[in-house]
Design a protein around this nucleic acid. Structure first.
Ligand SMILES: [Mn+2]
Ligand SMILES: [Mn+2]
Ligand SMILES: [Zn+2]
Ligand SMILES: [Zn+2]
Lengths: 140, 140
DNA sequence: GCGCTAATTGAGACTTAGTATCAGTACTCT
DNA sequence: AGAGTACTGATACTAAGTCTCAATTAGCGC
């Protein structure tokens, strides 16, 4: 989906400079599968400062190239995003693979919820945890 | 819903000792409205160590007296729980009030989701953010 | 190619949330 | 009273993330 070239183009389109640090972070991120922490990436881009990795990953998140994945324990992890825009995840608790859901399956209930609670609903978090098909079979 | 007496009874029922530190934490927690952080409580129970406040709030969470509320930015906060067991929240981003939903409105979709993704779904997070009726009116 | 300047960087200090260690205190039980 | 266990608070530590600031540099105009 995303590759180095397309991400560089997007950065250029937004007038961000293409620096060695940014290239290193983008490359490291694209090489990951499943979800990962910022410090995972820090460990894979020697010479690039931790603050820069945080800054770059924040930038990529804001641009929709990375998304934050909420884990079962409430901690946040990151992954390369397939869908830009609002979406949700199914995270395998065994292999850390992540499946993105393309439709927001919470949007249906928003109207009812607003009506029954009086809240004006502006956002939500929705993430699922479980075992992916591969992991389910591998244990028998 | 919960008061000091009922919480003390529950602690006693589970063979936990009723100590001054625990009483102080429980009292401080019951005095809060909306959601709060552990360190909010630390600041309100002078003389009680931070580790003890963490331990006590964890204990209260495990017993269903407190629940963790996921905020918009992905951070966790706490609140006195009305419902024990699995449930979700609507958090007012303006006044921090929290409304608990008594039914899990995600459970309906679990079957479909398992079927369409091959995942065996074991858990989920679902939290809503918005403006409560009071806050909506107060700004005009 | 060269210079200018705003954008970017990395070191490091700092914050917030939470865990681990451990010696000392205080119950509980007999 | 003595033994054993639960609990406590100080303190050190980890992880995630922000802030500051002086030094560097990418990319633009010439
Ligand atoms: Mn995603
Ligand atoms: Mn709750
Ligand atoms: Zn959604
Ligand atoms: Zn639910």
């Amino acid at each position: 989906m995303h590759n180095l070239k397309s991400i560089v183009q997007r950065l250029e389109a937004r007038k961000y400079r293409i620096t060695p640090a940014r290239l290193a972070v983008v490359t490291a991120v694209l090489e990951r599968s499943g979800h990962f922490s910022v410090d995972d990436i820090v460990g894979r881009v020697p010479g690039v400062g931790r603050a820069t990795v945080f800054r770059t990953m924040k930038l990529l998140s804001e641009m929709g190239m990375l998304c934050r994945v909420l884990l079962e324990d409430g901690s946040l992890s990151y992954r390369v995003s397939r869908h830009q825009g609002h979406h949700h995840h199914l995270v395998c608790v065994s292999c850390a693979s992540v499946q993105e859901l393309d439709a927001c399956i919470a949007s249906d209930m928003l109207g009812d919820l607003a009506r029954s609670t009086g809240f004006q609903i502006e956002g939500h978090w929705l993430e699922f945890f479980g075992r992916c098909a591969a992991c389910r079979n591998s244990v028998a």
